[in-house]
């Protein structure tokens, strides 16, 4: 079952930015959109393992800093024509805090 873990206060993640989170399940990238929604992906690009947390965020997509694949937050899928998927972790904001489920 999903086990919700507290990450940080929302304002420690910049808008249209992200933070790297070390966890027992490996490194996770937690993103914050312009609308203050949060999403979490395994911090490894499906292309060649680039750190997605270091990418540029626009809408609900991050552009990998290595070779510019675009990865979608909601399903972890690369935007076509690229093909690949990063694992998605449930994430939410509650009481001003960011939570992810591992």
């Amino acid at each position: 079952m999903n086990d919700w873990k507290k990450v940080c206060p929302l304002d420690e993640i910049p808008r249209l930015g992200s933070r790297q989170v070390n966890s027992a399940s490996g490194t996770i990238a937690v993103f914050r959109t312009a609308e203050d929604e949060v999403f979490a992906l395994r911090d490894k690009c499906p292309h060649k393992g680039g750190a997605l947390s270091q990418g540029l965020v626009a809408g609900k997509v991050v552009t990998c800093p290595m070779h510019s694949w675009k990865i979608q937050f909601e399903n972890g899928e690369a935007v076509a024509p690229d093909k690949g998927c990063a694992k998605v972790y449930p994430a939410k904001v509650e009481g001003g805090l960011v939570w992810i489920a591992l």
Partner: peptide, 19 residues
């Protein structure tokens, strides 16, 4: 706007292939 800069300019250092 730092979030509109490529990671190297945002972090003021060069990202490498291993992160």
């Amino acid at each position: 706007d730092p979030q509109s800069r490529f990671i190297n300019e945002r972090a003021h250092a060069n990202i490498q292939r291993d992160g």
